[in-house]
Design a protein around this nucleic acid. Sequence first.
DNA 1: GGGTCATGCAACTCTGAGGTTGCACATTAC
DNA 2: GTAATGTGCAACCTCAGAGTTGCATGACCC
Lengths: 110, 110
Amino acid sequence: MSAPRVEAVFAALGDPTRRQLLDELSRDGPKTATELAGGYPISRQAVVKHLNALATAGLLVGERRGRDVRYRVVATGLGDAAAWLTEVGDRWDRRLTALQRHLDPADEQI
Amino acid sequence: MSAPRVEAVFAALGDPTRRQLLDELSRDGPKTATELAGGYPISRQAVVKHLNALATAGLLVGERRGRDVRYRVVATGLGDAAAWLTEVGDRWDRRLTALQRHLDPADEQI
DNA sequence: GGGTCATGCAACTCTGAGGTTGCACATTAC
DNA sequence: GTAATGTGCAACCTCAGAGTTGCATGACCC
């Protein structure tokens, strides 16, 4: 259940522009695509595509307000990805400590 | 200093095959490229490219042992990425609670 | 030595994602 | 009403990278 979520989140976060957008929205609060596009060397349409990718991954939602759409961060998706990272890291740490317990000095160092 | 590290880590983790490889290595311990390749529907060379990408991001190291090279996980790079995720998430949470404090019911709901 | 096995290197193909442009559709402002 | 502004849609282009194949190199085993 968490697996496909993490899948989409990392795919979305793989692009540096998308990380910047997420960063900016989390810092400044909700903005429209046109407002955001001003700060990047790419077209508004390109920004919209990135925002849609982030929204599909569950990291953003776009809320219509008359003529414009304001995008805001949804933090839950990030939590899942962070959990995956720490899980892999911890798993390796456990392996390391388990190995070190059995280790005689003649063996190669880990 | 942490920024370019995170950059490389997310770029590396953006590919599902690379996440699987990292997952497998963290679970089963060090393996060679040929051993790993057996479990995937792609060629050994493709696996090697992925392993190099992960190594460049500082998530793996390859250690030569006579004829073969054993790849093992390095957990530190993951920590940086996890820190970035939780930072963005926390930042948004702070924004949320700050907004809710100033909120009068007439305004739109966040 | 000769055979086997794993790695390394290089050239090549090809799909998909990032980007652009142009235009149509809504909504606001005058 | 009309002009201006923001969004949505679709066609198109380009290029990085995921994958392949082939072969050379180096280490192990007999």
